[in-house]
């Protein structure tokens, strides 16, 4: 197994697609319209009336092999010792390469400032003894933070999800619990 790191865990079987995580994230980051640092995507599969819908709340996945770090010509990205991928706006030149390199569309371009912003797991918050905004916001307690090694060992834990990019590209650290219908086929 890869080196252990901090990670998100989302139990999609409890996710009601309410987008509270998205808005709590927007609020703490003062994100303008169009910037969705965390976003819930809803996928619809099957044929009427036997359809199935699953919701994937996702921010930066703090990947083991972060494509943003590789793509950034300015060196604005750092993967920290604890695995969190952080972005330094002071160094960012606004070239947007990271927004194209990330398979998940995590980095968000801020038109007004001309720079990129992304999830840093609310590290400042966490250092003040709080949980990340999305985690403490979720009405069904579906989002958690913790260590990847713990999440990976949970039954049904996966990142191999239908309609999502192959995890082989960047090796995301986020783990999901999904219903079988949402598994990669």
């Amino acid at each position: 197994m890869a080196k252990d790191q901090k990670a998100f865990y989302v139990d999609t079987t409890k996710c009601i697609n309410c987008k509270t995580c998205e808005i709590a994230c927007k609020d703490i980051n003062n994100a303008a319209l169009g910037q969705r640092i965390r976003k819930v995507r809803s996928f619809e599969v099957g044929e009427y009336p036997n359809i199935f819908v699953y919701n994937i709340s996702m921010s930066c996945n703090h990947c083991e092999d972060p494509q943003c770090v590789k793509a950034c010509p300015a060196g604005a990205y750092t993967k920290r010792e604890d695995g969190i991928v952080v972005h330094n706006p002071d160094v960012c030149i606004g070239c947007r390469y990271c927004t194209w390199a990330c398979p998940y569309g995590a980095p968000q371009f801020d038109e007004e400032v001309g720079k990129v912003r992304k999830c840093n797991m609310c590290i400042d918050n966490v250092e003040e003894g709080e949980l990340p905004a999305c985690v403490s916001a979720c009405p069904t307690r579906a989002i958690e933070i913790g260590m990847l090694s713990d999440f990976e060992n949970r039954p049904g834990s996966t990142i191999s999800i239908h309609n999502l990019p192959s995890p082989n590209i960047s090796k995301p650290s986020t783990r999901y619990k999904v219903k079988p219908e949402a598994m990669k086929r």
């Binding site: 252990d4 790191q5 901090k6 865990y9 750092t78 920290r80 010792e81 604890d82 695995g83 969190i84 952080v86 330094n88 840093n120 590290i123 400042d124 250092e127 307690r141 958690e144 933070i145 913790g146 260590m147 713990d150």
Partner: peptide, 15 residues
Amino acid sequence: FLKLSGGVAGTVAVS
């Protein structure tokens, strides 16, 4: 401010 080096200080009780 950003802390660019933070180390893992231990495992976490999640909820």
